[in-house]
Amino acid sequence: MSLEISPAARDALEGWLDHGRALKGAADNTLTAYRTDVLEFIVFMTGYHGQPQGLGALARITVTDMRAWMANQRASGTGARSLARKLSAVKTFYRWLAEREGFEPTSVLSARSPKFTKKLPRPLSPDAAKAMIDTVEAQSVKGWVGARDAAVVTLLYGCGLRISEALGLTGKDLPLGDTLRIIGKGGKERIVPVLPVARAAVARYLDMCPHDPAPDKPVFRGVRGGALNPRLVQKVTEQARLQLGLPATATPHAMRHSFATHLLAAGGDLRAIQELLGHASLSTTQAYTAVDTVHLMQVYERTHPKAQ
């Protein structure tokens, strides 16, 4: 794909990615997604105009060009949410490129993101979250593998970690104390409390694990000793939810959602929960208030005398 674009455009793209990596601490997964999205945009413009798009051509992108690209994306089956993400990546690239090359990027920046309905988190009930952890452990015939999977899922629910954050722990984070220093998205650092049950789950796994937890090695290992693949955690969680009869939304990430929602239901402060989750914006955390409101209304309608 990269051979279809001009060397200048390719160099600009890599320069922007290097800028994000060096100055903003963007995660590798984020940068990979950015590269794919912007590269697809440049390739489309190359075909649309019938010639390689150098920096001069990229600076002359028009509103009509943007509409054509967005229409092509929708026609190819790209959903509104995905298109909004792609457009955001293109706009971010253009802000950087325009500042570096000295042109006006209004035609690109004025493109309106498609509207889509935000999906609210689907938390598990406290009993279902506990059952998920217990069932995950029972899935494996190898005792230490079951203890490993249970420890990972316990960290997701007990500490509100993202799966990448849990699997990113290394030997230097051991032994787990009362708190854990996490480097999250965008290099954002936060301190999260570690519940005794989470410390116990990790300690139990480590006692059973046949691989040495060296300081530079991941805490959670695959059977052959390499870093644990997140897909394996997703797979064992899927097996557990099927066994428990839980909906398809009962994913590893749902355990993190459950952590936040259960804290909020117990009277937790929204700003504090934002810090625990590592959300850059409070608006992201505020989605949980909608979930909790739904729960409260269900309780109200079920129990209030006037609602009968």
Rank of each mutant, 00 (worst) to 15 (best):
residue 66 M to L: 11
residue 25 G to C: 06
residue 80 A to F: 01
residue 166 A to V: 03
residue 305 P to V: 00
residue 269 D to W: 04
residue 20 G to K: 06
residue 270 L to H: 11
residue 63 V to N: 08
residue 100 R to K: 10
residue 197 V to D: 15
residue 241 R to H: 11
residue 171 G to Q: 05
residue 190 R to M: 05
residue 103 F to V: 03
residue 203 A to L: 02
residue 102 G to V: 03
residue 177 G to W: 03
residue 60 R to D: 14
residue 212 D to I: 00
residue 191 I to E: 15
residue 299 V to G: 08
residue 297 M to P: 00
residue 147 A to N: 07
residue 295 H to N: 13
residue 212 D to E: 14
residue 126 P to D: 10
residue 250 A to I: 01
residue 132 M to Q: 10
residue 267 G to N: 09
residue 21 R to D: 13
residue 195 L to Y: 08
residue 74 R to Q: 15
residue 57 A to Q: 14
residue 101 E to H: 11
residue 301 E to A: 14
residue 150 A to W: 02
residue 182 I to Y: 01
residue 90 V to F: 10
residue 105 P to N: 12
residue 145 V to H: 08
residue 282 L to M: 09
residue 140 S to C: 13
residue 71 A to D: 14
residue 212 D to K: 08
residue 63 V to S: 13
residue 61 I to C: 13
residue 246 L to V: 05
residue 63 V to W: 02
residue 15 G to H: 03
residue 13 L to V: 10
residue 260 A to Y: 09
residue 72 N to D: 14
residue 196 P to E: 12
residue 63 V to Y: 09
residue 249 T to W: 00
residue 201 A to V: 02
residue 185 K to H: 12
residue 182 I to F: 01
residue 48 Y to E: 14
residue 23 L to K: 06
residue 64 T to I: 11
residue 61 I to K: 02
residue 200 A to T: 11
residue 73 Q to Y: 08
residue 107 S to F: 00
residue 106 T to E: 15
residue 212 D to Q: 10
residue 152 V to Y: 10
residue 194 V to P: 07
residue 133 I to A: 15
residue 251 T to E: 07
residue 285 T to N: 12
residue 29 N to E: 13
residue 264 L to A: 09
residue 160 G to N: 05
residue 301 E to P: 00
residue 188 K to E: 07
residue 171 G to A: 01
residue 206 L to D: 11
residue 83 L to P: 09
residue 226 G to L: 00
residue 250 A to S: 13
residue 77 G to Y: 04
residue 289 T to S: 14
residue 120 L to Y: 07
residue 71 A to K: 10
residue 50 G to C: 10
residue 6 S to E: 12
residue 286 Q to L: 02
residue 301 E to N: 15
residue 194 V to Y: 05
residue 140 S to V: 00
residue 236 V to F: 06
residue 295 H to K: 09
residue 95 R to Y: 08
residue 177 G to Y: 03
residue 245 G to M: 04
residue 29 N to K: 09
residue 74 R to K: 13
residue 179 T to V: 15
residue 258 S to V: 01
residue 176 L to A: 05
residue 42 I to R: 10
residue 57 A to D: 14
residue 210 P to K: 12
residue 308 Q to L: 01
residue 20 G to W: 01
residue 219 V to D: 04
residue 284 T to E: 04
residue 172 K to C: 07
